[in-house]
Write a protein that binds this DNA or RNA. Sequence first.
RNA 1: GCCGAUGUAGCUCAGGGGUAGAGCGCGUCCUUGGUAAGGACGAGGUCAUGGGUUCAAUUCCCAUCAUUGGCUCCA
Length: 645
Amino acid sequence: MSENQIHLTFPDGTVRTYDKGTNALQIAQSISAGLARVALGAVLNGRQIELKRPINEDGEIKLVRWEDEEGKTMFWHSSAHLLAEALQEIYGDVKFGIGPPIDNGFYYDVDFGEQKISEDDLPMIEQKMHELAKQKNEFNWYLVAKDKAIDYFKKKNDHLKLDLLENLKDGDISFVEQGNFVDLCRGGHIPDTGYIKAIKLLNVAGAYWRGDEKNQMLTRIYGVSFPKKAMLDEYLARLEEAKKRDHRKLGKELGLFTFSQKVGQGLPLWLPKGAELRERLEAFMRNAQKEAGYSPVVTPHIGHKDLYVTSGHYEKYGADSFQPIKTPHEGEEFLLKPMNCPHHCEIYKSSPRSYRDLPLRLAEFGTVYRYEQSGELHGLTRVRGFTQDDAHIFCRPDQVKDEFKKVIDLVFKVFNALGFEEYVAQISLRDQEDRSKYIGSEANWDRAESDIIEAAAEKNLNTVIAYNEAAFYGPKLDFMVNDAIGRSWQLGTIQVDYNLPERFELEYVGSDNDKHRPVMIHRAPFGSLERFVAVLTEHCAGEFPLWLTPEQGIILPISDKFMHYAEKVLHELNKCDIRVSIDERAEKIGKKIRDAELKKVPYMLIIGEKEVENEQVSVRKHKHGDLGSMSIEAFKEVIAEEIKV
RNA sequence: GCCGAUGUAGCUCAGGGGUAGAGCGCGUCCUUGGUAAGGACGAGGUCAUGGGUUCAAUUCCCAUCAUUGGCUCCA
């Protein structure tokens, strides 16, 4: 073994030996010309590097192409540099923050000083990027001493990069240069700008420097880029498709819900069809909860301020909430309830509890009101008044894990019934550095956190751990599901709480005849009905499962001569709880079918002379077409069969 | 809350300093039709609200409200 050689392990396990200073491009060429042609960069010991960066160490290496996750990352990261270069060319003296790749594209945070940027400016910037891309400028990575780097950005008067530099370790700093643009950058770039063939700048947004609202707000430009024009077209087409699934659009089209400026922002109004659907979801959950040993309770929409002082919510959220309402004479203060748990604690306290009573599971579809920031409101997914399928489980400490697992089962029951296959189970734990922001003892937190982790592991959940995401009173397990345009929303949630029982001084008498403190588990499998319906709508693109959908079928008489029989069919089906209506309009059958298809009605029952004669209905299924004629009884069975699943 | 955009008929949107238009929907009539759009006629708008500029504002400017893309937040 020579000191001038390096040993590199490839993903398939083979080890190859090269001279020190060999670069990834040469390595790719040594494997195949094809690989060298498509390689965008390499990953060496977990670090992304350029093809031409000399390699001087042993380790694991992977050559990456566009098809690889890292390939896209490097491509988009490089595109961000290109964006910055274009901005510098156009606007001159602007300061650059950070420009990372994201899931679908990249952004750059920029301080434009006095200049204002709006979406109208994007095409011009895109144009400039294309120009610069055509120059095929190489991305050159090189090292600079830290003090030299500081000098460089001082000269440019770039406070953002200086701020970044301050937080970097001493020693050499890496720079990347392409064309006339030099940036502070760790690296991982594609060979040159010429690879970037298709660019679309998507939007302009404000973003706080370093994500802290105390800092200056920078202008963030989002974009996406591709090595081929066709890929961009495909991506944009997918975005258009996704927009069609947007629950705000579908909710309007299907008559599920609406908002009124007069009622107030973030306060949804459920229309008859939406309300019906929601009631069916509630019934589903009531049933499941009954089976799982929950007891229903009902509590009012407001509660005395003292209740929330006791719970700690007032201290934590009081100033940023809807303000208390006062009784006219006594001046007593009440809050719109932001949570159901304090009320449930009082129900727990309404009677002495024995260890034999535990676990006590109190369930309520509780409507709560929270003052969400106006900029955060979004359709039904983020609102100011919403109903949780809430329940609180009061149990002994040794029952926590078991109860937790039962709730996980309940969540899966929901997800299975509604076809949510893709979710992320996020375990939210404390901030590892700052523990001052949490209520409750260290020992309780430790125990709660380990209970969750163990329960999740025993249920084989695919989990991610998120530090600093816990509620202020306890750790939690959230089930996150994506919406149509890829945003992640929390649906089901399970939270351990060792804190409220203490604040409310909840007790039970143990088998030892001593008093003990119960543990609380907050849980909501749907989360909020509003958000759940929103995400469900997007998930199934408005084509709800038959058991849930407001309109299961529509009867389409070919002419009004058959209206009498249509009504007979209607009554026959309604009698069996099959939700159908009649399209009584004087339209041709093709028109009625088209409209029913557009309304996504699952079954169309066409009735004409033949059907009347044979006492049948001609069945047409949404998106499938004609299923042929059958008796009313047979159709009922079709429905029954589909609902069973 | 902060940065950007938007607000015209029930819906989707066009227009533009001289008080408005399309398609769909809706209503009436004709048509009574067989698996994704039959025809005619008609009703519908203080152009989000409040100020300002102007002889004149729906159009330009400012503010407010709402919606929207992000950021921050999210019991």
